[in-house]
Computed example of a mutant assay.
Amino acid sequence: MNELISIIVPVYNVECYLDACMASILNQTYRNIEIILVDDGATDRSGRMCNHYAKLDKRVRVLHKKNGGLSDARNKGIAYAQGEYIMFVDSDDVVSLDITRYLYQLLKSNYADIAICDPIHCYPGKEIVFEPETSQWIFEPEDAIAEMLYQRSFLVAAWGKLYRKKYFDHIRFPFGMLFEDSAVMYKIFDEAKRIVYSNAKLYGYMHREGSITTKEFSRRDCDILIICSQIMEYMSHRSEKLQKAARSYQTAAAFRIYMNAPRNGKFDLELKICNKWLQENKKLVLHDPGIRLKMKLALFMYKFARPIMPLVYKKINRWK
């Protein structure tokens, strides 16, 4: 089989990165793709560059729109996608030339509905070396959701995954929010029947100054508190396993805000909520065998060594 796969690429002020991103997509070994470039009101040359790619390759479709953020751009791309399957690639990242073929074959050979690979962390000017798989796992939806919320293996990110498009028929990314992936991935997984994950590192996640993940803490960083409350509500009538996993994710989010929010009076309410969650969850989470060692250590420090937490937190790699 050689089904059409839609690759959705939101584009906003990435003129220095877009060529590398598009070179990695246009040269995919899996050829039956459509590339949907969503120009999210770029103010640099990115929009014109999108038009150039459309002239170069008939598989490229360009949508120009007013700036609405990453979620809005992805949602527009989903609405226009014609493929049986979809992928998301951020326009400042790069992917292995084989990622589409690999994820498609991974999905098909395992009779799965979603296929997942790992990222390789990239930095401007550094060589990118993708890595083959050494292991793969099959998950039922509940097990995959728990794995994701416990943050044990694959990431909650929308990129690095291949999905049946129909799962997005009634699910969209929340407009204007950060952590938009956290708001929808558990719902998408819940729609699937079977999910396959490989630890092959085929998605090049680019770390750069000025990206969302490197900006200073802002009010929007607190969006994760809203999303965690939604996840807790969603799981409140589900299995004990999912409720525990949701509580672990909520606790991790509380730590993120607790450790990063400035103590300048502007975030007092959010810090109060985080302290409340940490107090309520610490005993339950500590007795949960599913949580990561990193979380256990953080909870112990919160309880017994709170003054030195900022020193330790600076040395923690948030990607592991």
Rank of each mutant, 00 (worst) to 15 (best):
N2G: 10
N13F: 03
I25T: 02
Y30I: 08
N32W: 07
I35T: 10
L37N: 00
L37G: 03
V38Q: 00
D39R: 01
D39M: 04
G41W: 11
A42I: 00
T43F: 00
R48P: 02
M49A: 09
N51F: 04
A54M: 05
A54D: 04
V62A: 08
H64E: 06
K65R: 15
K66N: 12
L70V: 11
N75D: 06
K76Q: 11
A79Q: 14
V89W: 09
V95L: 04
D98A: 06
I99T: 07
L106P: 07
L106M: 11
L107E: 09
L107W: 08
L107F: 10
I114T: 10
I116L: 00
E133F: 06
E142D: 07
E142S: 03
E142Q: 09
S153G: 00
K166S: 12
Y167C: 10
F168T: 03
F168I: 06
P174C: 13
F175C: 01
S182E: 12
A183H: 06
V184H: 02
F189N: 01
I195K: 07
V196D: 07
V196K: 07
S198Y: 09
G210I: 10
K215Y: 03
F217N: 10
F217G: 02
R220Q: 14
D221A: 09
C222T: 14
I226V: 14
I231C: 01
M232A: 14
S236H: 10
K241E: 04
L242H: 09
A246I: 02
S248F: 03
A254T: 02
Y258P: 00
F267D: 00
K276Y: 15
N281H: 15
L284M: 10
H287P: 02
R292N: 12
M295E: 13
K296E: 14
L311Y: 12
W319A: 09
W319D: 15
W319R: 15
K320Q: 05
